[in-house]
Design a protein around this nucleic acid. Structure first.
Lengths: 141, 141
DNA sequence: CACTAAAAAGACACTTTATATCCTTTTAGG
DNA sequence: CCTAAAAGGATATAAAGTGTCTTTTTAGTG
């Protein structure tokens, strides 16, 4: 339950790799894919999503590729995950309370809200900078 | 992402319903299913799992049915959820670190550990008693 | 004992989501 | 214009989720 998909895992690997490069370095998708051990065609889809969200910048044609859209210390893991997985929703009642069912109030609802808040909080507290260099993230564990 | 399945949602509805009844009251599966608006055949599977975990006691034959296995204040939401959904695993690397990939260390790993801890913590802090009567759970939100 | 009530167990069916891959199109440089 | 690279769209396969149905076991009752 509550498991990140391969897509999410690949997305993180790919963008963390980029975050470890100089900010203006343009990387080939094929190189990234090889480096982080992800199927290139799949990673392509993921980076297209990133590109739309502005998390990465893309360049087409000869000499093209990808670079990080912003400084790695300004991109949180939450953004990355939500960019490819959609919002973090522990239960659908969080987004559509009427689904809680027959009654218009449900005691479990606020619990899921809390779960959502905690998860988002953790992920929001981690930046790509930390993930690529590896300091404070591990101190919190 | 991170979404509870229907099974999990139904499981909670069903057992919270039981928790709202007198502790030794035996309820028919068909009645529970009707009360909480869940397909009876599906709920049957769920309660079989509960039964194996000791969360509910079952009685077969005429006059049979289900009752709560323990006092509702001694059953946490975490137990209920994990009984039917399995362990809460935000990423497979949490359970099998070698999946983190090529290197034997990964900076993201401890983050998922924290997520797991937070989610479990929230769910562990909520009992069926609270959910069926509706007090302290909402105060925390 | 036979009959009926109810849960347990197992097999099956259908739908949705996940996990890719392939092909064509667009964009840009040389 | 030829080549490099990403963008977009369609498709394929596998796995998980969501149920249903049938048969079996267990237990009470006339």
């Amino acid at each position: 339950m509550m498991e990140l998909t391969r897509k999410g895992e690949y997305a993180i690997r790919g963008i963390v790799y980029l975050a470890g490069k100089p900010i203006d370095k343009v990387c080939l998708l094929s190189d990234i894919a090889a480096a982080v051990d992800v199927p290139p065609t799949f990673l392509a889809k993921i980076f297209q999503q990133f590109s739309k969200m502005g998390l990465v910048k893309s360049f087409r044609g000869t000499g093209g590729g990808f670079m990080l859209g912003r400084a790695p210390e300004n991109i949180t893991l939450l953004e990355v995950v939500e960019a490819v997985e959609g919002q973090i929703i522990p239960n659908r009642c969080v987004v559509k309370p009427s689904d809680c069912g027959r009654s218009d109030y449900c005691n479990v609802h606020p619990v899921w809200k809390r779960v959502q808040g905690e998860v988002r909080g953790v992920l929001e507290g981690v930046t790509l900078k930390e993930l690529s260099t590896g300091e404070p993230a591990s101190k919190t564990n």
